[in-house]
């Protein structure tokens, strides 16, 4: 019921030099109040385009969307007032100090001078900006700059905060720090919508995840749901024997009712099994009865990368060809 971000049938098509690219093809979204929502997909999948439509930066071709109860197309000014947005680029003024940047941004959102100054003090504490708040942004490290970017996005206490690839380019320590800060925002009631192509980020941070590929939603749910529904656990068995025994082992394991997928590579069996930990003793007994011996056993919880692979047939990690129609075709 209480959805902060809603979208139905969003579409966006770019035309450039006789080419037509359907960047977003009928996207439906529902983001509940107070959750961290991950919008996941490879570069060029339509993440940023969707985000730009939801934040009023780009007109919607077809479909409708509302943010914080206001229609994105017809009530753009209200949406802007209730929404925070931190782009991949950040966009703070390098020649100004962090504090000056925050005060200007707060004033642009309509805040009165004194109120904005008080709010900036809060933000300095909230995002740990104190040691460098009065230095020019030019001198900031990547992590400091990112924290300032987030501060600029929440200076007006928005109901919904959009973060576009918030941790790209950050080292692991700063990334973990930013995750904590995003979680702290949720504790204070802000709804967070973030795009990422880091699966472990979505896994660690997001309450719910939607995967987009080629402009269409291919999966949605909590990270745990997605991982369990799609595949079950990844079970690997190394067979101590000849090709013939490997094949017999493969058909035995495939016959187990909870096995979703089974394949052999050399002497290695790769299985996706629902509740693998429970199925494994049963499999081992079957193999033992046939006198097939094993040299190693592995059970791994699937990752979101496995989900992505299953849903799109590609791995997010190694695929990632930088064909990004949204970048070059924007507004053309």
């Amino acid at each position: 019921m209480d959805d902060v971000i809603e979208a139905e049938g969003l579409r966006k098509t770019f035309r450039s030099k006789g080419r037509t690219v359907e960047a977003v093809r009928g996207v439906d979204l529902r983001v509940r109040r107070g959750e961290i929502f991950g919008f996941l997909g490879p570069n060029g999948a339509g993440k940023t385009t969707t985000l730009r439509m939801l934040t009023t930066l780009m007109p919607i071709d077809e479909g409708r969307a509302s943010v914080a109860g206001c229609d994105v197309a017809s009530q753009a000014a209200l949406v802007r007032a209730k929404t925070g947005y931190v782009s991949q680029l950040g966009g703070s003024d390098e020649l100004a100090t962090g504090r000056e940047n925050m005060i200007l941004q707060g004033r642009l959102y309509g805040g009165e001078k004194a109120a904005v100054q008080r709010r900036v003090e809060q933000l300095i504490d909230l995002l740990d900006l104190r040691p460098f708040a009065d230095r020019r942004v030019k001198t900031y490290s990547g992590g400091q700059r990112r924290r300032l970017d987030v501060a600029l996005g929440i200076v007006h206490q928005p109901e919904a905060l959009f973060l576009d690839e918030p941790t790209t380019g950050l080292d692991p320590q700063n990334r973990a720090g930013l995750w904590d800060q995003v979680k702290a925002l949720r504790e204070r009631g802000t709804t967070v919508f973030l795009t990422t192509h880091y699966l472990e980020e979505a896994d660690a941070l997001c309450d719910r995840v939607t995967i987009i590929d080629h402009g269409e939603i291919v999966a949605e749910g909590t990270p745990a749901q997605l991982k369990s529904e799609v595949l079950g656990d990844a079970v690997t068995l190394r067979i101590d024997g000849e090709e013939d025994e490997v094949q017999r082992a493969l058909s035995l394991c495939a016959s187990v009712s909870t096995t979703e997928q089974a394949s052999a590579e050399g002497d290695l069996l790769r299985l996706y099994v629902k509740d693998g930990a429970a199925a494994l003793p049963h499999m081992l007994r079957l193999l033992d009865e046939q006198r097939i011996s094993l040299s190693s056993i592995g059970v791994a919880q699937p990752t979101l990368d496995d989900v992505f692979l299953a849903k799109t047939g590609r791995s997010l990690r190694d695929g990632d060809p930088r064909e990004s129609p949204e970048e070059e075709l924007i507004g053309a």
Binding site: T56, L57, A77, T83, Y85, Q88, L89, G90, S92, L108
Partner: peptide, 16 residues
């Protein structure tokens, strides 16, 4: 320059 730095976008998402 400001477009490439994301500054223009930062202003355009405000109700200014």
């Amino acid at each position: 320059f400001e477009m490439q730095q994301g500054i223009t976008e930062r202003f355009r998402v405000t109700p200014a």
